[in-house]
Nucleic acid binder design. Sequence first.
DNA 1: TGTACATCAGTGAACGCGCGTTCACTGATGTAC
DNA 2: TGTACATCAGTGAACGCGCGTTCACTGATGTAC
Lengths: 196, 196
Amino acid sequence: METVKAKKYHHGNLEEALVLAGLREAQASGTRNLGVTHLAKSVSVSPMAVYRHFSSGESLKAAISQNARENLAHRMQAAALAVSGTRNRFRALGEAYIHFALTEPGLFSVAFVACDVPPAREDDPSAWGVLQAGIQELCDDGLIAQSATESVAAFAWSSVHGFAMLANGLDPVRPQATPEDISKLLDLVWDGILGA
Amino acid sequence: METVKAKKYHHGNLEEALVLAGLREAQASGTRNLGVTHLAKSVSVSPMAVYRHFSSGESLKAAISQNARENLAHRMQAAALAVSGTRNRFRALGEAYIHFALTEPGLFSVAFVACDVPPAREDDPSAWGVLQAGIQELCDDGLIAQSATESVAAFAWSSVHGFAMLANGLDPVRPQATPEDISKLLDLVWDGILGA
DNA sequence: TGTACATCAGTGAACGCGCGTTCACTGATGTAC
DNA sequence: TGTACATCAGTGAACGCGCGTTCACTGATGTAC
């Protein structure tokens, strides 16, 4: 019998606790401080205990990164469900993506950090999958050709992802991103998609 | 009198030698191995010598990153000069950007790595400035409105930068980028721009 | 239900490593007179 | 042109730190009979 939520991982799920601690750390300071020693300390456990659940520090980092991506995917799904109309739903995906990047810059950077090791399972849900579903809907409504779905997907993702990085100040290029800036970008993306 | 090229930095320019060593390292392994100790070793100098030229390890990293960005900007300029016609020149900027990211993934990632310290001087040339010049040309030719230049710049940069990251496999999303993929992306970007 | 034992999930101390940075120093270069 | 001296650009040894990982261990849990 479980005590519903992880409380004491003397016997509880240390694995989940470590990932949650990593997400907390990510929220606060991005990709720094995702090391084994640090995270073990933050859940009051000896470093060795980590290796009961993860084969290496990199695979723990990969699990944290995956969790952050799934968090993003969930928000995209929720945003799409909240509005009606094919175009509005598609646009909501982009808005949610950029909003996530701006409001959770730490999680965002961790979500796409390079890991030496692939995650143990596939992303579920995956942001990429959510985007493809949205594009399929555009296709079903006859807004774009079936043959164009792939390049439209790459284009939409690139634009929104690139803008998110830009606005995030990760690049030393330009920092600001007002709601109008975001809206204009999504307009241009939409124009590009319809032109396909 | 100088011996034309930095040979012995017992008396020569260690500063330049360190940055060049950093670029070599970046080319080989990206943002790893850009530390003071490592770079000092790679030019056969004691770590302390670095601090004669840079106030900290971070400011050395910032200088290397800046140099990588300027390298990118140079290639964009050269690509634009090699073709004629407003549209072709603009497209060449995007192609050069993506080509740089694909052929020099290490330099590309270092160019946009987050540094704790700003570079000592402004980028010269700056990739962002080169892009803006290209957009101004579009404007002069009446292809886009002057009022749209800012959002077009953000859009073009975002799309191309995002695609480059994507194709680079930095994101665990999708890896491939054939010349056709690149061409299609740039078509869609162009459609978006003209729709502005 | 009671006991014996395997397994599981942790402890705690230690390792070697490379890091950024500081110290006091040295020897070569450039400059004033 | 020659000497005295300040400055500049390096050496080399050392520091404290946190890292990932390994070791032998311990105590609690679950299971067989």
